[in-house]
Amino acid sequence: MVRYQRWLQAGAFYFLVAITGSLLPGTYYVTLLNLIGLHIIIVLGLNLLMGYAGQISLGHAAFFGLGAYTSAILTTTYKVDPVLGLLAGLLLSGLVAVVVGIPALKLKGYYLAMATLGFGIIVAIAFQQMDWLTGGPSGFMGIPPFRLLGWSFKTPTTGFFFVWTVVGLILFLSLNIVDSRIGRALRAIHDSETAALAMGVDAQRLKLLIFVVSALYASLAGSLLAHTTNFIAPSSFGFMFSIKLVTMVVVGGMASIWGSLLGAAVLTILPELLAVFHDLEVVIFGLILMVVMIFLPRGLVRGLLDLWEFRQRKQQGR
């Protein structure tokens, strides 16, 4: 049975996607679900980096943006096929991740956080300032949708199927990575880098590898964003979005692949729900961030489980 577990999971996942995609009314929910899917892709990669390898990044919005802008510029300005645009984005993001990752991953803890933060802000400023290339602060319009085998993924619903097919694929890859020789070595580095080194794990190379992987995930999500929404603006790729991504990882639970789905979903839906409060939206969002982190520092799922167990124990004690 265990042999077929992955296939059953995959089957169930795509069945759910197909049902959801065909039943959803209107474009609002589809668009929101697309956004959740994109965020899940980034958060899965960031969780490999943060939850498994134990390395923080406060600049992942940059890779999201690099993917999005490479796709947008190549396909719109230079009329390249979207799939090639996506691949070019991956190539660029991978290269940038290597160049930044080699010096940055020598740093630890807060210093790594500062370096990735600085990197993220520089890239965000470049998106704003290189207006001859990126369209500047007002954004980039008219990005063509994906075309595959004669199919055009123009509407939000077709975009939905495209995005969530990729989400399923990335989920499959991530679950496999975690459950492998590489995933094990990453967790080992997280627990004790000294011991991992002594056991022959090339910690520096592996950290870089997973940094690049997480950058590729983010870049992929960026390209998908560009081709499904047809419009991108630099404000989507700034410092606050990087923080939001990290928050999604932590809220979902570090080193929890399934938690990443939850974290991404919750933090994507939350601002939508809060929109009814208008100006209060930001205040409430800030408050929720603080309260969740203060009272459930290990994330929503584990935090609630902890609370529940605590309660059980208390009741048994009486």
Binding site: L173, R184, R187, S192, A195, V201
Partner: peptide, 30 residues
């Protein structure tokens, strides 16, 4: 200096890391 969040057998499996070779791609694609 054990890997505390990993199981006992997983700890030993890290020891096999250097004698085995499945890379990221092979692992990701199973």
């Amino acid at each position: 200096q054990l890997f505390g969040h990993m199981t006992v057998v997983e700890n030993v499996m890290v020891g096999r890391h250097i004698r085995t070779r499945a890379g990221l791609l092979a692992a990701a694609l199973r």
